[in-house]
């Protein structure tokens, strides 16, 4: 099912490089606040401040986003705790190439825990998150992190070997004088 273009997009896409939303998000916010008509300034101001202060941080284990000037808010979550991913595009977002990637964890709220807006490569981001999710990786793909896994699981074996060698030394040193 993966075509060459998809593979290419996956190769060139780097989620860790995403730090700021795209400028078209500001235009989208402007359009959305235009819907409120005469209350445009009041509606646009919170959107504007959100856009100005919005920061994303994707690392190996999780993602965090923060925004706000007066009331600051920062959300952190780990990829492994993601329950489901929702990609939503309304008609304006489709025209502007934007999307909302909503991530859900098993918390009690009905709404999504994190809504990532303003990423142009939303499909790639969604698939990146999907690949970090629990149960998404196949055996063939899991081999890459199996190497690191086997190194860490070698630790008990190393400890056991140490104990065995100590016992060997002990028994041989005890055996010699008798």
């Amino acid at each position: 099912m993966t075509t060459a273009t998809e593979d290419h997009a996956r190769m060139t896409f780097d989620a860790t490089s995403i730090q700021r939303p795209d400028t078209s998000l500001a235009r989208y916010y402007g359009l959305v606040s235009l819907l409120s008509g005469p209350f445009f300034p009041i509606a646009f101001l919170p959107f504007y401040f959100k856009y100005i202060t919005l920061r994303y941080k994707f690392d190996e284990s999780g993602v965090s986003m923060s925004w706000g000037i007066l009331f600051r808010r920062e959300i952190q979550l780990t990829y492994r705790r993601i329950q489901d991913i929702h990609l939503t595009r309304n008609i304006v977002q489709r025209w502007m190439g934007l999307a909302t990637v909503a991530i859900q964890t098993a918390s009690g709220s009905a709404g999504p825990e994190m809504s990532i807006e303003g990423v142009l490569q939303a499909n790639e981001l969604r698939d990146y998150l999907y690949r970090q999710m629990r149960g998404a990786r196949g055996e063939t793909e899991a081999t890459s992190d199996d190497s690191t896994q086997s190194e860490s699981s070698d630790e008990p074996l190393a400890l056991l070997r140490e104990i065995r060698d100590l016992l060997k030394d002990n028994s041989s040193s005890e055996g010699r004088p008798s």
Partner: peptide, 13 residues
């Protein structure tokens, strides 16, 4: 149609 919604769930979850 107007708002296109795509949901992804792994069987594990």
């Amino acid at each position: 149609i107007w708002i296109i919604h795509e949901t992804t769930i792994t069987f594990e979850n």
